[in-house]
Design a protein around this nucleic acid. Structure first.
Ligand SMILES: [Mg+2]
Length: 232
DNA sequence: GCGACAG
DNA sequence: ATCTTGTCGC
């Protein structure tokens, strides 16, 4: 698919912060795809070489509700930005956008490994990615970046709202009984409620939703194979 | 100034 | 995230 590069990702932290503040105002946090009409979901993730020089990425398209693999795109890109809490998108999005450019089919929703609007300036990886793609995105993080919440019940599906500055920005969701919950927040073109509903719907017996889990395993494999072959 | 802090 | 083997619990 064609990607509109709404701005450069090759910036310093000061400019990155300014961009986050202005881009957050463009987010649409309502509605989103209904589960009944959901047909194709995407999941993406990034891995790094031990030297911190290259980023590898994997993007999967899965059918819904079967969750069978329909399409897979893998690739790599040089790393230009360090990991700084609050600026993850500037480190991971370069390789991710390249993957989407190689995608044939346009998904109904995209799952990202990180926060959506549950972010200091309201623009986590999933939100930033959503603005570039112009597609509904959902942030599924394995841990908290910001916000307060009450521990959800221990059963699969139990949840509690995540608040930040007095505002509900996401959902702490138990995707598997007696297991640490995940932090779901809308990225773009979807509501807080719908984001959590979809995240639970695309999950199976594992803690991490299938789209992101699948991309994580495939990118690890891609990185290992690429490095073993000694490719530059 | 100190502690927190997605991946 | 990455570096790494085995080990504990459901
Ligand atoms: Mg990741």
């Amino acid at each position: 698919m064609k990607i509109d590069r709404i701005h450069s990702l090759d910036v310093q932290i000061d400019r990155a912060r300014e961009l986050q503040l202005e881009l957050a105002e463009r987010l649409v946090l309502e509605g989103g795809p209904k589960i009944e009409r959901l047909r194709i979901v995407a999941g993406c993730d990034v891995a790094f070489d031990s030297a911190g020089k290259r980023a590898f990425g994997a993007l999967v398209l899965l059918s819904f509700p079967e969750l069978e693999l329909l399409e897979l795109v893998r690739g790599e890109a040089p790393l230009r930005f360090p990991y700084i809490p609050g600026y993850l998108s500037f480190r991971e999005m370069e390789v991710l956008l390249g993957l989407f450019e190689g995608l044939k089919t346009v998904p109904d929703a995209v799952f990202a490994d990180g926060q959506g609007i549950a972010h200091p300036r309201g623009l986590g990886l999933a939100s930033h990615l959503g603005l570039f793609l112009g597609l509904p995105t959902i942030g599924c993080a394995k841990s908290r970046l910001v916000g307060t919440y009450r521990e959800p019940g221990q059963n699969r599906g139990d949840s509690s709202p995540l608040f930040y500055r007095e505002r509900p920005v996401g959902t702490v969701l138990r995707t598997r009984a007696n297991t640490k919950p995940i932090f779901v927040s809308p990225g773009h073109l979807i509501s807080v409620e719908n984001a959590a509903a979809l995240a639970l719907a695309v999950g199976g017996r594992f803690r991490v939703p299938e789209p992101t889990r699948s991309a994580d395993r495939l990118v690890s494999e891609f990185k290992r194979e690429t490095i073993q072959r000694g490719l530059v």
